[in-house]
Amino acid sequence: MSTTTPAVRHVPRWLSLPPLVAIVVLLVYPTVFVVAASFTRTTLARPLQEWTGFANLTSALQTEAFAGSLVRTLVFAVSAAVLATAIGTAVALLLRARTGRGEGGFGVLGTLLLLPLVTPPVMVGVAWKLLLAPAGGALTSTFSSLVGSPVNPLGSSSTALGTLVLIHVWQWTPLVVLLVFAALLGVPDELLEAASLDGAGALHTFTAVTWPVVAPTVLSVLFLELVVGFKVFDLVAVVTSGGPGLSTVVASFEVFRTGLRGDYDVGTAAAMTLVLGLLVGAVTAGVSALRTRAAGADA
């Protein structure tokens, strides 16, 4: 019998192979390709033809829509993440307040809440586009009759992006509810009772007892929502196609319509991708570091 104890048996390296293939195909190879394509002449027919220096990057930064699309992506991701996390946490607290009484449960309402989450984003876009249609949309009609004048949130460049944020929040808030609700079940009732016997108000109970337990989950969910927000593409493509004007052109959509539609300017699209990748990388790494520090401070 071998003298090594079974506990120190090593996980064989070949088990890492399938996930490494995924990382190479989806992260390493695309990064190398995008960097290479950013500095060469590339067409759909023939990639990486000849070195062109910074011509693609210059072209990307001079594209009217691009700089704005980066700002819109950032605004979209941050506002959607904050809104979804805030609303989702509030709904989870409401659900907990009800189940705490011992009646009902996550049950029926929980199932209903899952539905927006599992609806494919394209279908979400179709549904909301129809709801908000200037003629025939039930929501716009209802609002118009309440306000007394025609309302068309998707038709105005000042409100279209905000409307898309709200639609995205509709889809992604349930994830927050689900995860924060599960974390709330970890808050012991005895502590809540003790707090209430000590005469602590609802707000004080929340800050002293509930929040410390659920804070790590809420921060994780906020991070997750931020990542999801940065990926936005479907809603823009289906609901507004970037309009009115350029008001809802987010970076993903700009890359897509530059490289795979219109002039098929792959080089410029690659340069845009590079800038977007760096921006998203910097923001997510920054937030991730903040999260780790907050977790460290807690411990």
Binding site: H10, V11, L15, S16, P19, L20, A22, I23, V25, L26, L27, Y29, P30, T31, F33, V34, A37, V227, F230, K231, F233, A251, S252, V255, F256, G259, L260, V266, A269, A270, T273, L276, G277, V280, G281, T284
Partner: peptide, 28 residues
């Protein structure tokens, strides 16, 4: 189960997930 190697793989996968899919569209 693979300790540090596992943590490294986990970090690489997280990075892959965080990158917007549009980054991979042209190369793929």
């Amino acid at each position: 189960r693979a300790g540090k190697r596992g943590a490294r793989l986990s970090a690489a996968l997280l990075a892959g997930y965080c990158a917007p899919p549009v980054v991979a569209v042209l190369p793929l």
